[in-house]
């Protein structure tokens, strides 16, 4: 017996479809925290570091970052077919749900109990997203310089509401410089 972790499973195309379909349908408060939960913790297809790197690249490219990340994950495991199946499943389910919800909301959106349930879910989802960021930071263990870049992103976008393109493009050079110094020192 060795202490090595068991080999990480490789998904089939059907796995990708089902898993991304699930991520889309449970993705309250945004996809990214849920995608990490399912891909890293439940399925173990990616490590925290790999998931965060994919998401980071997805943020620098234009377009919804969860979509860009799903294309890269799909491509990584199954090429072009994966790059179509993963985002397709992630958007398809919620889109059908949203069409139904749009009709439901027109009819019942002002009913107090519906509003209360939505408010309760939204409050819990907010905590879920914050807790995910805390967990990722703990698992990735960034050196101080990279941690500082992350805190700058949090403060700029979360407290001062700086538009995201400025946050991403403005901080990217500092993050890359910090990573260069860390990797060169190894």
């Amino acid at each position: 017996m060795t202490d090595e972790p068991p080999p990480r499973p490789v998904p089939t195309l059907l796995d990708l479809f089902l898993t991304y379909g699930k991520i889309g349908l449970i993705g309250f408060g945004g996809i990214n925290a849920w995608a990490r939960r399912v891909l890293v913790e439940e399925k173990r297809w990616l490590t925290d570091q790999e998931y965060a790197e994919t998401l980071g690249l997805g943020q620098v490219l234009p377009g919804p970052n969860a979509l860009n990340a799903s294309i890269m994950v799909g491509d990584r495991f199954h090429g072009a077919a994966g790059a179509i199946v993963a985002p397709g499943a992630m958007f398809g389910g919620p889109l059908i749900l949203l069409a139904g919800l749009a009709m439901f909301y027109d009819a019942y959106g002002e009913v107090p109990v519906v509003k209360a349930v939505l408010a309760g879910i939204a409050a819990a989802a907010a905590g879920m997203v914050i807790g995910t960021a805390a967990k990722m930071t703990q698992k990735i263990r960034p050196p101080p310089s990279l941690l500082a870049v992350g805190l700058c992103a949090l403060v700029a976008a979360g407290l001062f509401r700086v538009p995201l393109p400025y946050v991403v493009l403005g901080l990217a050079p500092f993050g890359i410089l910090a990573a260069y110094r860390v990797l060169r020192a190894k």
Partner: peptide
Amino acid sequence: RGLVPIAV
């Protein structure tokens, strides 16, 4: 590596 902290 450099983009990871921004993502998180």
